[in-house]
Design a protein around this nucleic acid. Structure first.
Lengths: 225, 225
DNA sequence: CCAAGGATCGACCCCACGGTTGATCCCTGG
DNA sequence: CCAGGGATCAACCGTGGGGTCGATCCTTGG
């Protein structure tokens, strides 16, 4: 029996791309799709699915949280998270949420198909090539490039810190963030400072870069709104 | 006879998505694809194409420049530029380069198909919905939101300024940019300053946001590389 | 040849930012 | 009950970034 796959991504055309690739496989069927986390959960209530291909960044409910809710249910399908980038940030919270693996969206189709089969058969897949490539790509953005033996708390951000990071990533100043969250600017500075050290970044500019590369914020997503 | 379409985009899966949508049309054929500008120009030397769907942001040779070269040749195909965002920046240089139209990548398929047919029949397409939506989405990032009667030189950046902007968008400091371009830091500051006033932004942080929203820089594209 | 615009640089000022230290309050778990 | 972590805030300080003015050099176009 074929692997029943569900696609969850807010980009219609990207879904179409995946669907086409999967449809060409004799052992796979795309049985459902959703454009956001809420929709995904709804669909899952009435559809039997083996593997969910889940985008991290989505409107309404992000991939990590959606994954958490899916995996908290009995007889849950496997979840393979897709991202344009990666970070311990997501890796940790995503896997903790119950995901079976991580893949870059731009992996070669063959690798993606392999990952789906692996996940379906119960293996965890955190593409080694993925991780390696990401670190390579990312290192120039780090302050102490190369000499980072224990990269400490990289990614273990607090909820509050992540909240602040979102606003930093949208181009807001500390003052604006303080106003937005009804806080003292001093507090915001504390949070921002911790975010920088935890993520190993130099300044808020690099936070923005990271946020986009990560998928925390996505182009066209809504710096406005 | 069908409209012969060529897809130029560095995202394989996105190409696949477009291909599938177009393949379903009785009057369209995807006769060629390319992952970057250089490849596109090569392929075009040996393939007859009516309409080129061109991504703006690509490795090696960006969409605007590629468009320019395509359109400078005799008997050139029509070019429809696809972007995740928009700006007078691109609109001007793109149309000046010879493009027949602009579309957001996330337009409904029906609209995209219509645009292709329009362009093929000789019409210029700058989706009105596109422009409107973009301005709406972008306004909150501007300093003087709402009261911007003549938004001055928005987008009319110099080549050098655009070059600097790229580096700013990758998270580099003025000093790093100066080193990279073999310039005085004072010069870099001058350029950055002009970029900010021209684009109506407050600081380099917003430059990064804009760059990603514009497609000037793309997530996963290579802040490193 | 001269005007205009771009690129390059310097000096100056001000402030937002980031680093550091330390403090209070609250909640949770042992 | 107390230790620990998170959230909140304050004061201080050095620096990078942005604003402003001005200067030189070069290319382009009329």
């Amino acid at each position: 029996m074929s692997i029943r796959v569900m696609l969850v991504d807010d980009q219609v055309l990207l879904r179409t791309g995946f669907r086409m690739v999967l449809a060409a496989q004799p052992d796979m069927d795309v049985v459902a799709e959703a454009g956001d986390g809420v929709e995904a959960l709804e669909v899952l209530r009435s559809t039997a699915v083996d593997v969910v291909l889940m985008d991290v960044r989505m409107p309404k409910l992000d991939g990590v949280e959606t994954t958490r809710r899916i995996c908290s249910q009995p007889d849950a399908p496997k979840v393979l998270i897709l991202t344009t980038f990666d970070l311990d940030e997501y890796a940790f919270s995503g896997l903790k949420a119950g995901a079976s693996g991580f893949m870059l969206k731009d992996v070669p189709p063959a690798e993606l198909l392999g990952a789906i089969r692996s996940v379906h058969s119960g293996d965890a897949v955190v593409a080694p090539s993925t991780t390696r490539r990401l670190l390579d790509r990312f290192s120039p953005m780090l302050p102490s490039t190369g000499k980072d033996p224990e990269h400490k708390e990289l990614g273990r951000l607090t909820d509050r810190e992540r909240e602040v990071m979102m606003l930093v990533a949208q181009g807001l100043s500390n003052g604006e963030i303080a106003a937005r969250l009804v806080l003292s600017e001093a507090t915001v500075k504390t949070h921002v400072g911790r975010i920088l050290t935890k993520l190993g970044l130099r300044d808020r500019v690099q936070v923005v870069v990271l946020a986009y590369e990560t998928g925390l914020v996505r182009a066209g997503g809504g710096a406005a709104g």
